[in-house]
Design a protein around this nucleic acid. Structure first.
Lengths: 232, 232
DNA sequence: TTAAAGGCTTGATAAATATCAAGGGGCGAA
DNA sequence: TTCGCCCCTTGATATTTATCAAGCCTTTAA
């Protein structure tokens, strides 16, 4: 892989402070691959052979136990996943599959760990990234433990709305069943939660939602930056 | 603070690979303090001024939103907490209070970050520790999303039992209401969950529990190393 | 064009969990 | 010792969430 193929990767917080030569070395060991939708990339319990960077498309991280399955999060360009397992040389805790046709960069774990040893700036960037991931899961955990299903949905809608420019409407970025699973509920329950939000000005039509009474919705949702705000 | 005061701290994975002089420097900036039980140490939203190391006693990390409150985890000697916030120079996502009389080491954030810049071995140890914390929360999150309350309790009992030497009985390490909160349920529900486990050989008397039918309990609990096993 | 499949919704029902209220019992303080 | 407090438990009930079944609608493919 030549670095000129992927100028965007160099701009990622994780890589931007690396020395040019270390970045070159890391990229020369990397593979850039295209995958169709719904392809299983990794399975929880497998050893972490690669660090993954989503270049195009999107990837779903999910977990299974006991015959149940739940979506843990979605990774979009240019996000990375499975960094913690790579650094600890441990097995994956989550499985991953493409949810769309995707282009993904694979960095062999050994090379990532080597770069981490040799490049102080990279090590520092990794710490920042990891600490950010950690804080993200803590927020997800608080979300699940401290809010009801309807509150989680209300906050998620407000979040999508803000992300998309706060125009009074928003596009649901995933299938409803995926959103249901991310929010920790069944698809049936998500349908009912949308109905519960009707009196708060939420109108859903397919994958579009209009928010006609933001004040009311915010009063119900009680958004909290220590749960809802993502860190860069 | 003299390093000779705390030989155990030097043995922590986080500090054991630091250079002697950097460790000395870091410890000279540190404060060792005794706190009574039930004392608030930090409050979510506050800036992270210190990294905390529990030397004796125990500390409860909890979170609040919307008038609800939930225990996120307990930290026992020699555990650290609030590392991610310190490294990102961000606000705390969780509050902390002593649950017993405790002796706690406070390391000023600036000094921790300085040591992290100057000491490569420390940086590497931090990454390992952070990655471990991250994987811990992911496991907690899977636990909550993929299991019912009774299953969470059954697995927790098996965990305590193994930790305490697998003698057929175990001591509950915290108040039942604290255990309930950790497991994401109300105290009333915990009582009922214990009753549900009676047919599986679980006999509770005060803070002691006997496990009289481990096979039955394991069949119900379906323990899963990708959820239940803690990493060092 | 039609059939089949899948995603979503709705209704009916069941299960899980929370809330409210009351009371037992242990433990510390006076 | 005795009182009062707090933790825990239990019962009754309400709320939340899941499950099961059916049907609608759109998409896909033949």
């Amino acid at each position: 892989m030549r670095t000129t193929d992927l100028p965007q990767v160099r701009t990622l917080p994780l890589f931007e402070s690396m020395s040019e030569s270390n970045f070159e070395t890391l990229m020369q060991a990397a593979y850039l691959q295209n995958f169709p939708a719904q392809l299983d990339l990794i399975s929880e319990g497998d050893p972490a052979d690669f660090l993954y960077v989503v270049i195009e498309g999107s990837v779903e991280l999910y977990a299974r136990s006991n015959g149940r399955e739940s979506t843990m999060c979605m990774v979009r360009p240019l996000g990375t996943f499975i960094l913690a397992a790579v650094l600890r040389d441990a097995v994956f805790l989550m499985s991953a599959r493409t949810s769309q046709k995707s282009r993904i960069l694979l960095l062999p774990s050994e090379n990532v760990r080597a770069a981490f040893e040799h490049d102080e700036a990279f090590a520092r960037a990794i710490v920042r990234e990891l600490a950010g991931c950690y804080r993200g899961v803590v927020k997800d955990h608080k979300n699940l433990k401290l809010r009801t299903a309807v509150e989680r949905l209300a906050n998620r809608l407000l979040h999508y709305h803000a992300d998309q420019g706060a125009k009074g409407f928003l596009e649901l970025p995933y299938d409803k069943r995926t959103i249901a699973s991310i929010l920790g509920m069944t698809p049936e329950n998500l349908s009912r939660a949308f109905n519960t939000l009707k009196p708060y000005g939420v109108e859903v039509d397919g994958s579009t939602a209009r928010l006609n009474d933001l004040d009311a919705l915010r009063t119900l949702a009680k958004p909290n930056p220590l749960i809802d705000e993502r860190e860069t």
